[in-house]
Nucleic acid binder design. Structure first.
Lengths: 161, 161
DNA sequence: TTGAAATTGAATTTCAATTTCATTTTAAGG
DNA sequence: CCTTAAAATGAAATTGAAATTCAATTTCAA
């Protein structure tokens, strides 16, 4: 993922850069969009809409849920956000500024999500694609297990019914 | 995934084996459950509930959607079905009898889902797990791209807005 | 055969995702 | 600084899959 701009966190230029980027798409820069972008970029992790909305509402309770929803969709389209769906089916957003492609380690105990990158994965991907005559555009890999604190908490693992 | 029984497709023993397996869990074997199991095992692929229900309803229109829903959940718990959630967020079920663990190649053109197995993935998984102090129980890997017929249909790729 | 416990299934609820639409705001052109 | 068309907003409504409720029915162990 290549960004046209480097959006620096907590940088006052953000709003101007955003204005330029968004107008290139024939869209309009608004107070709400800039606020949501600002809050979104100044946070880390994989958050669902409710969490993002909660944070936005704390700063500006006048901004509606719908606008946050639509803005996150917009940011995804602009390449500033990335949408993720893990096994629980919930949609989460992550700042694209956080880095390039990576995959996820998910703790079944505490829900913690770790990111990782591995070059071996790419060659593996190509090998499998070639074998099946596919042209791959992207992949998704998630490893589910227990992080070391959670692994030590209980010997017996509780499963969800 | 190790099954306690080998459920053979179209085998009259199915119902008795199921009876045994289910009673071990303190649950009851019912006409509906056996019918749903039978239909489910006698099909392949990754199907959502609506598709499974449609097939069940064709055989026995008296069986309700709720029962199909609950039975698939039950089969998943018993290890006879496996739940899959791909990037579109829809829940799909696949017969566990179809094989052991595998991953998926998904065509963005026609929606076709291919299965693959790759030993390299396992060692990769262990390496990454070790690096992050995780104890991995399972993983999920999906490769998204175009199968060879779809890749040849159009040069330009149409993307979802 | 009996009856407690489990299952069924239509209807309902839940809940996130999405759409609608009347009102407001943006930004480009005077 | 106005005007205005196009876009954005946000409350409310809608959608759709997943999950639950509950009265009626069925199962199965005794």
């Amino acid at each position: 993922m290549k960004l046209k701009f480097n959006f620096k966190k907590g940088n006052a230029m953000e709003s101007n850069q955003f204005k330029t980027l968004i107008s290139e798409e024939g869209l309009k820069s608004t107070r709400q969009r800039v606020e949501i972008l600002d809050i979104f970029l100044n946070s880390t992790g994989h958050q669902n809409l409710a969490e993002i909305y909660a944070r936005v509402a704390k700063t500006n309770p006048k901004i509606g849920y719908t606008t946050v929803y639509r803005t996150l969709k917009l940011l995804t389209r602009l390449g500033l956000a990335a949408q993720r769906k893990f096994a629980d089916g919930e949609t989460r957003y992550e700042s694209a500024a956080e880095g390039t492609h990576h995959d996820h380690l998910i703790c079944l105990g505490c829900g913690k999500i770790l990111e990782f990158e591995d070059d071996g994965l790419e060659s593996l991907q190509h090998r499998i694609a070639r074998r099946h005559g596919f042209k791959i555009f992207h992949h998704r890999m998630e490893l589910y297990g227990y992080c070391s604190p959670c692994a030590h908490k209980k010997t017996r693992i509780r499963r969800k019914g």
